[in-house]
């Protein structure tokens, strides 16, 4: 089975009068290792929106796990190469509000004592975007050519929501998906209890939080759960499975890119 689209879009034969923005895709560690489909969905969405996508192959991680553990030296060591790696791109786009938030909001703090890094870090922060908000707010995408016959519910991941103000953007694009309806959660903005290393440092508290979340999700009556961050999605999907629910769970980019047929949902067993 292949998770990549079988054919990527071919360049049009007539030259484009305005140069296409060159987007560097920041894949994120979790998408890279756990869910490549999200990366290919992002590439498809960006290309369809008129971007040229480049994936620097030396990229690893934004350094957030070390940053949030208080280990600033390690965080800098991991983060620093990215700044040069993406220096020549018009934009940097990540299918994650958390990783984009790290680069936009926290790199300036992380390198605050390094005057040489001030300009490059500022430049990177200014051109970095979370995927869906980039599509709507920069590329002015009004809708997508996708279909999904059923209802979805949407969890607003904390970093995207509060650091980057991602709230309406995914809903706007989801409403353009043919056949899709949205059942909102009672508390879409309440944290799912992932929190990076929090979920393994304080598993019982995390368990209570994600349990409250899955109750809300199940009560929504939706066929599918969507969100914009793999960490939250793996936490919620893992809890749903543990509770015996087979509800389909996906990254929002997969639905928007019409790639739900490319792979089963997250922790989704083979069916139908």
């Amino acid at each position: 089975m292949s998770f990549a689209p079988s054919s990527t879009s071919t360049p049009s034969s007539t030259p484009d009068p305005t140069p296409k923005p060159r987007v560097g895709l920041f894949v994120t560690c979790l998408v890279d290792m756990f869910r490549p489909t999200v990366g290919f969905s992002a590439v498809k969405l960006l290309e369809e929106a008129g971007c040229v996508v480049d994936v620097p192959m030396e990229q690893v991680c934004c350094g957030q796990p070390a940053f949030n553990a208080g280990d600033l030296a390690s965080a800098r060591k991991v983060a620093k190469p990215l700044i040069a790696m993406f220096a020549d791109h018009d934009y940097v786009v990540a299918p994650s509000g958390s990783c984009a938030g790290m680069m936009i909001k926290h790199f300036p703090e992380l390198f605050a004592n390094d005057p040489e890094m001030a300009e490059p870090v500022k430049a990177l922060a200014a051109k970095t975007w979370e995927l869906v908000s980039f599509l709507t707010d920069v590329m002015k995408l009004q809708g997508v050519a996708a279909a999904f016959d059923g209802s979805i519910t949407y969890h607003d991941s904390c970093s995207g929501l509060r650091e980057l103000k991602v709230k309406e953007q995914p809903r706007k694009l989801l409403r353009s998906v043919t056949g899709l309806s949205i059942n909102e959660l009672q508390e879409p903005e309440t944290c799912c209890g992932f929190g990076g290393t929090f979920c393994v440092k304080y598993p019982e508290i995390s368990g209570k939080m994600v349990g409250d979340k899955t109750t809300d999700i199940k009560n929504s009556g939706a066929d599918m759960l969507l969100a914009g961050d793999m960490g939250c999605l793996m936490n919620m999907a893992g809890k749903l499975r543990r509770e015996g629910s087979d509800m389909e769970v996906r990254h929002v980019a997969e639905v928007l890119a019409d790639m739900t047929m490319a792979a089963p949902g997250i922790a989704g067993s083979e069916k139908g």
């Binding site: 290792m33 490549p36 368990g207 994600v210 999907a237 893992g238 543990r242």
Partner: peptide, 26 residues
């Protein structure tokens, strides 16, 4: 070594290859 995760919830399995492997192949 992952009981902090698996005591509470299942760990969703990866899809098999990494994005970068697939991208390079493509």
């Amino acid at each position: 070594l992952a009981s902090g995760w698996t005591d509470i919830r299942d760990l969703p399995a990866p899809q098999g290859k990494t994005f970068k492997q697939l991208w390079a192949e493509q």
